[in-house]
Design a protein around this nucleic acid. Structure first.
Length: 116
DNA sequence: GATCTGACCACCG
DNA sequence: CCGGTGGCCAGAT
């Protein structure tokens, strides 16, 4: 697996239960600000039972943008509600209220820990 | 190396 | 609150 994807998964794994992050935010924490689009691809390439909480990653507008045709969007909404994140019927989440704001120490640790 | 593809994003009308 | 646009990026062809 590429270092990039390994870092992305590491960052997503660090998101606490009940909190969410935008694709762009994950990209920034992974050391690749601007690579938001590549985050989605990295998560879609995730094997089943990877242990990576991919459902805690949403669009910057607080919308669930996972493919509805494959029922992924529905699953994501359910998983989020299961851990206390409010999701409207149209799949909207209040980022202001549920976004994760990692401490400076955590940000530093994520940037220094080599990908695995 | 050139092209094409998205689970993106900020901006504009 | 849409809907379109141009820009950006890692991967797969």
């Amino acid at each position: 697996v590429s270092d990039f994807r390994a870092r992305v998964w590491m960052v997503v794994k660090a998101i606490p239960k009940g909190r969410v992050l935008s694709y762009g935010a994950v990209a920034a924490l992974a050391g690749k600000p601007g690579a938001a689009r590549a985050i989605g691809a990295a998560l879609s390439a995730l094997p089943t039972d990877s242990g990576v909480p991919w459902w805690r990653v949403l669009s910057a507008s607080g919308r669930i943008t996972t493919p509805r045709i494959h029922h992924i969007a529905t699953l994501q909404g359910r998983l989020l509600e299961d851990e206390g994140v409010e999701v409207s019927e149209t799949g909207r989440i209040a980022m202001r209220k549920h976004a994760w704001h990692p401490s400076a120490e955590t940000v530093q640790r994520l940037s220094q820990t080599p990908p695995r």
